[in-house]
Write a protein that binds this DNA or RNA. Structure first.
Lengths: 337, 337
DNA sequence: CTGTTAGCGCCTTCAC
DNA sequence: GTGAAGGCGCTAACAG
């Protein structure tokens, strides 16, 4: 059994109050008593029990995180930010992964509340209204990070339209005229996809260029295969020289598909991604992409929560727009016509 | 303020013991009393405070996980296993990331102990003996998952030598004769690298083939660049047709390097990886690799810990050898000579 | 079946 | 500067 404050008190021949005082440095203690206490702590290898402490102070120093899947790269990048900043303020991360199940998410929210977490961060694209309701009801400060802009009460994200606009403008400046976009159709109107395509549109029309908006139903490979023929024929017909895609993985899948059809990137067709996830750096050709500052999104989110905890006013919402960076790599060719 | 067991008791007009009994279903309660309690719980939206519960039961239902970096793919795969199995037994994950700092790891071990975690899983290649000492001293069941076989008190891993042997045999059966291996030199003698190369050796000598053992100092790209010339000249001189590498990322880097030197995979040289991480599926050509069952490693590790918790006997160690699977993909060519 | 009592380990008044 | 006492929210004997 680990030693308790009582053991220390006994050994140092003082009361437990005094021990508590030296541990927390809360009130003056005579040098002599402090010395004895410190010595006893050392000898007994005493470590205050955080559970007991939490019970009385009502501070768990825990932030609950509910993710859809720990596995995805961007999630771990966000987690990094959350973890590192949380750590700075002595907060620990209680992690739970829902694997895409809404009821599980709600269950976790309850569980986390019971564990007395002081804040909750949700990283999920499930658009779970029941979860939101629960969270709202629980009075625990929370932040949702997703692809759905409407679900994000507090927004710590980039300006998707602007970033897309810049990216497409960049392509145009490199001499591309016939540029297609490929976005995800699923929940298009409620996700940032809309903004991305809107940025593409803006850049194209602003330069008097014709838009070619293509869509895949979902982000997986099968969805791409479904529209493969359409994409290929559009490329031929309109003599497309560059494709603006709305996700890194989509870009990679597109490049793979093109390659399977003997169309090389960037020699034949340039391709851009969106996200700046690890894969964009490893794949060859290295992907020209928009780097979303996931770490910062996580960092800002937990900062917001910590602020809510100290200020006790969840209501005050002040969105944060993070800067996005365009990473120019090998997947885009400069046309010299 | 959230309602407590007292509030429920008052409202249901019973003692708190009775409330506790219905919550925990620990002892018989009259239907009438139960009904009233349940009703009060419903109305007050009462949720038992897990912190208070932990304090008295001495069960935190927490497993601490210390990782070197949440970001890496294999870590999240292991985490999946840990999380999902832990969840089945009502355990939550307390996550902390050390970002490669040994002292931080030790600090975390202390912190987790104070938070009364019932077990600790370390996923790190730091080979931190101070941490091990701390862990051993803490009497908390723990498991270390790393590339160092000597550090893994309890081993839940694949048979690296066998897997490598199979992979190289596979190459030989496909007609390759001049096969080189590229492994990581750093800490070679203490890591599984040794077993991997040993498996390669065995398969080669068994078939009367000459071995070509090449090394990079570390897993990063720079280390590869340092020995780039050596590798290239070996390929030419010995007419190497296949390369057995000991990590997926190493394989990818090698393929990229070869490509930069106009050597195509698999047409000119076949390349195999090791790990079966996500990247192996996304990269083109898709990587032929050894799939390490990371999820299972995580699952088995936490099972081991849970067992130690219930059985109270950490001493009994029984290693688990997981099956590895060879994933045959596009990066290997069958020679028809 | 049910209420009373005694803690779990710690912090925090409140007197001295 | 220090100790005694009360209590955080809950569980677990122990009587009844």
């Amino acid at each position: 059994m680990a030693s308790t404050i009582k053991d220390v008190a006994k050994m140092a021949d003082v009361s437990i109050s005094t021990v508590s005082r030296v541990i927390n440095d809360s009130k003056p203690v005579s040098p002599e008593a402090r010395r004895r206490v410190l010595h006893a702590i050392e000898v007994l290898n005493y470590k205050p029990n955080e559970v007991a402490r939490s019970l009385v102070t009502k501070k768990s120093n825990l932030i609950g995180v509910i993710v859809e899947d720990i596995g995805s790269n961007f999630v771990s990048q966000i987690l990094r930010g959350v973890e590192e900043v949380g750590r700075m303020y002595k907060y620990d991360i209680l992690l739970s992964s829902s694997y895409g199940d809404m009821d599980t998410e709600v269950k976790f929210a309850n569980l986390l509340a019971q564990k007395q977490v002081e804040g909750i961060i949700v990283i999920s694209n499930l658009h779970n209204s029941k979860l939101e309701y629960k969270l709202e009801e629980s009075k625990i400060p929370y932040v949702v990070i997703s692809n759905f802009y409407e679900i994000e009460k507090f927004k710590a994200n980039i300006d998707y339209e602007k970033a897309s606009y810049e990216m497409v403008k960049n392509l145009i400046e490199k001499g591309h005229k016939n540029i297609a976009s490929i976005a995800v159709r699923r929940d298009y109107d409620r996700t940032y996809e809309k903004q991305k395509v809107s940025g593409y549109d803006k850049a194209m029309t602003e330069n008097g260029l014709e838009t070619t908006e293509l869509f895949v139903e979902d982000l997986n490979q099968e969805s791409l295969e479904e529209v493969q023929e359409e994409i290929l024929s559009e490329i031929k017909e309109k003599n497309i020289t560059a494709i603006f895609t709305t996700f890194d993985t989509l870009a990679i899948n597109v490049m793979n598909m093109l390659l399977d059809n003997n169309i090389k990137t960037p020699d034949d067709v340039s391709v851009t991604g969106f996200g700046g996830t690890t894969i964009s750096e490893i794949y060859r050709p290295k992907l020209t992409t928009v780097k979303i500052p996931y770490y910062d999104i996580g960092a800002v989110s937990i900062r917001k929560i910590l602020k809510s905890i100290t200020d006790k006013e969840t209501s005050f919402k002040k969105d944060v727009t993070l800067p996005a960076q365009i990473i120019e790599c090998e997947s885009v060719k400069t046309l010299n016509d």
